[in-house]
Write a protein that binds this DNA or RNA. Structure first.
Lengths: 222, 222
DNA sequence: CGTATCTTGTGAATGTTTTCACAAGGTGTT
DNA sequence: AACACCTTGTGAAAACATTCACAAGATACG
């Protein structure tokens, strides 16, 4: 399970480990930069990014310094330039081929979510097991039979799978997705999936978040 | 006597700050315990919770020890007992009054998500600004006019608001929600909301998660 | 040109979370 | 009862993340 031995060989310079929370913040900075840019703002300080992003100026500078020196002392960061840099860092200077597995309500919300397409995440295929749904069209896509999933994932060279299936099906679908060569999954099912080393997994779990809120409310009233 | 000692300890430790990630894990342990319980399993070890929850046995024990000693050395934890304890810790030994603001696709997915009601999160009101939607019925609820929000939030003593409105409306709605006395918000809008001290906020931001995956994929191939 | 004012980039300090490691307590077997 | 084995609970250590604090570069302006 936990292999201490392998960690011996720590990868060097290029792939210094960036924490998940740092990446999350970068994504937020990117959003703020897009906003600033669309308002015609030309420069922005770490202070302003921090203020609007809910963090501190030092944190912003540390985060950015993980990848280079993009600012000008005394001035701040050039919005357009930092925007380009961040896009490149996050891998958004290209488009990504996404497949949606599970054409339920959550999937439906995703499909119609324009921000996705706008940011280069293109939904190339939608799958479901329900024979009534297969063949129906969904946005620009036609719902495909789940049985063809492996084939299509490979054929269409899908980069990222969004998993929106019931909890009890999620692990089995995940295994099939991984075996088709996909190595990034966004999981909406309320389960903790197991994926092999090298596959990136993010979870969106509304129940966990709600329970977190319940906890805060509860412990406040001690 | 035992009871008294235990309550004191719990009270003491509630004042200590529990990290957000610890709370998230507790929520996951709870889910695993429910699963184990429904399969008739009577005891469970930190090792098994760790394995199935994607963490380590030491982490599980540390997390639980923040609130008390629930296990038996040599044996593990009694599933039923730990289940009760965790429910109480997380504040799930009661039900919570939830309102949904924004009757769009995401809201729709939430309404039909049975896990919510099952876990004691009862949706007591749904609001939208769209005159075409107001008055329509949604699940068991009728969509209410956004203008009446403050009134209804207070009247129905809403504990938690789920915010599923467009990004550019989110901050204004948040301010109104907070001023109505609600102090827990689950935000689905892709913005970083500002809330006063004492208001709990959780964000579910799909774009941030997708960009995190894009980053992983990108930095792997460098 | 000199001086006042910004704001970055970054080591060092501090704070937080996770992991380690093991004594202590419990069970089962002979 | 003695022994072999489990598994918890927890200080201490290690790893990781954030904040501090300030030198250094850049601008603006008299």
């Amino acid at each position: 399970m936990r292999d201490v031995a392998k960690k011996e060989r720590v990868a060097d310079e290029r792939s210094a480990k960036i924490s998940e929370s740092a990446v999350r913040r970068l994504s937020i900075y990117l959003r703020l930069l897009q906003e600033a840019d669309s308002l015609g703002q030309e420069t922005i300080s770490s202070e302003e990014l921090a203020e609007r992003g809910g963090t501190t100026a030092a944190q912003v500078r540390k985060d950015l310094s993980l990848f280079g020196s993009f600012g000008k002392r005394g001035l701040g960061y050039a919005v357009g330039e930092l925007l380009r840099e961040l896009r490149e860092i996050l891998g958004l200077d290209r488009s990504w081929r996404v497949a949606l597995v599970g054409a339920g309500k959550i999937g439906s919300a995703l499909i119609s979510y324009r921000n996705f397409q706008l940011r280069g995440f293109n939904i190339e295929a939608v799958f479901d097991t329900d024979p009534e749904k297969v063949g129906q069209s969904w946005g620009a896509d036609t719902i495909l039979n789940d049985a063809r999933m492996e084939l299509v994932l490979a054929e269409k060279e899908i980069d990222i799978v969004v998993l929106a299936v019931p909890a009890d099906a999620a692990q089995a679908v995940t295994d099939r997705v991984v075996s088709s060569g996909v190595s990034a999954i966004l999981n909406f099912a309320p389960v903790r999936l197991r994926v092999p080393e090298g596959v990136s997994l993010r979870n969106v779990d509304m129940v966990v978040e709600m329970e977190g809120l319940a906890f805060s409310l509860t412990s406040e009233l001690r």
